[in-house]
Amino acid sequence: EGALGYVREFTRHSSDVLSNLNELRLRGILTDVTLLVGGQPLRAHKAVLIACSGFFYSIFRGRAGVGVDVLSLPGGPEARGFAPLLDFMYTSRLRLSPATAPAVLAAATYLQMEHVVQACHRFIQASYEP
């Protein structure tokens, strides 16, 4: 006893896990929900959606979310605002342009992704400054 235990921390682990999850998404492996956004079907993992979005957390955390494997978002975000958010969830990179920022902001608000909402506001604010 008394041997000094120590921890090896693999600092890339979280980004490596996320990168593998994105590869699973792109190949349709273990994706368990189809999101109909603006009529466009997008496959994803509920676990990733619930981890990243307050809206999906409220939908999938309860028993009601168990059987749901197709989810349409009527009156919800348009695809051009939603798709960048789905990519963000799986890559940590949010692609914004002056043309898409308002749609991404609307989608992030709908999905209750407050930190992304703030980043969109900062981007839009900055793009108006001379």
């Binding site: 619930i50 981890a51 990243c52 979005s53 307050g54 957390y57 969830m89 940590s92 990179r93 692609r95 342009s97 209750q112 992704m113 407050e114 930190h115 992304v116 980043a119």
Partner: peptide, 22 residues
């Protein structure tokens, strides 16, 4: 031709925190 992409690092929290089991 894709526009030039500037990357801005956001150091703060990125997503909500799932509440710990009460």
């Amino acid at each position: 031709h894709e526009g030039v992409v500037a990357t801005v690092k956001e150091a703060g929290r990125s997503i909500h925190e799932i509440p710990r089991e009460e």
